[in-house]
Amino acid sequence: MAAGGDHGSPDSYRSPLASRYASPEMCFVFSDRYKFRTWRQLWLWLAEAEQTLGLPITDEQIQEMKSNLENIDFKMAAEEEKRLRHDVMAHVHTFGHCCPKAAGIIHLGATSCYVGDNTDLIILRNALDLLLPKLARVISRLADFAKERASLPTLGFTHFQPAQLTTVGKRCCLWIQDLCMDLQNLKRVRDDLRFRGVKGTTGTQASFLQLFEGDDHKVEQLDKMVTEKAGFKRAFIITGQTYTRKVDIEVLSVLASLGASVHKICTDIRLLANLKEMEEPFEKQQIGSSAMPYKRNPMRSERCCSLARHLMTLVMDPLQTASVQWFERTLDDSANRRICLAEAFLTADTILNTLQNISEGLVVYPKVIERRIRQELPFMATENIIMAMVKAGGSRQDCHEKIRVLSQQAASVVKQEGGDNDLIERIQVDAYFSPIHSQLDHLLDPSSFTGRASQQVQRFLEEEVYPLLKPYESVMKVKAELCL
């Protein structure tokens, strides 16, 4: 049975990233139509530049190519590739079939990587351009969430054990800070992308030097003109047959890092959902379990974690691919890159769409948070109580021993009897502590235990987050809708 299948058929496997999760716009960027249309555009740009620099290419040939950029006979191309065992030459023939007058000058002087690699770089750039505003929107939604809850005390956790208090907004800023680093890295790697350009079979530009009869300047002009037509500021000066596969490492490393950030955020949300302090959106008709109707599973956060793990592992592909590119190139890269580049971007696209949807509907339960604080705060307040007693004339050592005994009794009630923490009640009825009984409410005010959390939130948002989001103001209103 021949390899390949009808990918629109229910009898043929289709990647869930495309069929179930990723956005239509990201799927289109990695589609065959987008790819092969870009090949034709690159052939047109090459012909236009070659004509401008004096090669015998007519206006009629150029116009014929322009008129057929979208006229792609995919069936013919597939048949040609089956016959020739070469995808680029299959599309040269297919393009030439609908451009008979231009057929002889299509791909003039070029090698397969002229269309293959340059198209990949265009796709990487455009895919990054799709991700950047999506990530900015996630940051914006979380920034709104953090600002609104900047002063809401909550129990902090280290080692997932109760620690000092923080605020809900401050905790959210930990998430935002990681995503801001990801946004900066995505922008950097996007701006650092260079075009492969017009380089020939081993990167020496020998074929173009021959076409222009040894004119170095025209060869350099050709490279520059096509690079500018493709919208790049610069091209690699040095290439082998391909652009260095280190570029793929750079791009997928940034995406993998984004995956790590999203995994951490969504894990926190899942843990908070278990504590009943916070939940992701839950639709009115949504079913959490087929057997347990009360369940409210954090399905979206779980999906993000599941896909983020996949995204983090994909960076190993370009690392290994770059390491086995012998001399000017081997074909070890080809099949692998067809999979890992598309999957990385479709996965990143999915987790950003999902995280935006989550961040637009996060639900906080202040009463649950308050109750958990009441359970733990008495123990945390013991040092403040000791200091207040010393100020009232008591002995630190005597007070410490009193607190120690009462704390152990209260802990026994919590752990052995399943009761509430009654340390404060014990202190309130103990005559030894009568000098500070009137101060206990103040000493137990949760806001006095959150330090500068709310001020940190305000400063972080104003100095770091809002300036970073400013270039994306025009796209901030787009909502994230999930079908599944």
Results as ranks from 00 to 15, higher is better:
E277Y: 00
S407P: 07
R270D: 00
D129T: 13
D178C: 05
P318Q: 01
D73T: 04
I269V: 09
Q409T: 11
S207Q: 04
D182M: 01
I369M: 10
F232C: 03
I427R: 01
E417S: 08
V364I: 05
I339E: 00
E462Y: 11
M181N: 09
V429A: 00
V478D: 12
T354N: 11
F195I: 14
V324S: 08
S290G: 01
C172S: 09
Y34W: 11
A163I: 02
V390P: 05
A410F: 04
S151L: 09
A22H: 08
G451N: 00
R296H: 06
T450G: 05
L84Y: 09
N274L: 09
L121N: 12
V198D: 05
V247S: 11
I238L: 08
K75I: 08
R188H: 15
L183S: 13
T204S: 11
T242W: 07
S474E: 15
I403R: 05
D216P: 07
L69N: 12
T202Y: 02
S207E: 01
K415H: 02
L130M: 10
L319H: 00
D422E: 13
L307T: 14
C99G: 06
L108Y: 09
D430M: 14
G288T: 01
I427G: 06
Q397F: 02
L440Y: 13
V254N: 15
N384D: 05
V168K: 00
S395E: 08
P133H: 11
K479W: 15
R404E: 03
I176L: 10
T58S: 07
A146W: 01
Q177H: 11
M89D: 03
R33M: 05
D191R: 11
N357Y: 01
D144P: 12
F345E: 01
L484Q: 15
C98D: 12
I403V: 07
S15G: 15
M316L: 12
A388S: 08
K233D: 08
Q184M: 08
A344G: 07
I122A: 04
C399I: 09
E277M: 05
D398K: 14
A273Q: 01
K75L: 09
D215L: 08
Y466A: 10
F160T: 12
Q241V: 00
E481A: 14
I427C: 10
M316H: 11
D11S: 04
D120H: 08
A2G: 07
A49M: 06
E64H: 07
N185R: 12
P298R: 01
A273S: 12
K199R: 05
D223Q: 14
A3W: 15
A102T: 14
M26P: 11
E50C: 07
K35N: 13
A47G: 04
C113W: 00
M181D: 14
V324L: 14
A348W: 00
L135Y: 10
A260S: 10
G197C: 14
T330C: 15
A150G: 10
S289Y: 03
M26S: 04
F236L: 10
F145Q: 04
D445Y: 12
I287D: 00
V198L: 08
S395T: 06
I122F: 09
G104V: 11
P378T: 09
L179M: 08
E280L: 01
D182Q: 02
D332F: 02
A273R: 02
M76A: 10
R245D: 05
I139M: 08
R85K: 08
A3I: 15
Q397H: 06
E401H: 09
P293L: 02
F160V: 08
F157V: 03
P10V: 13
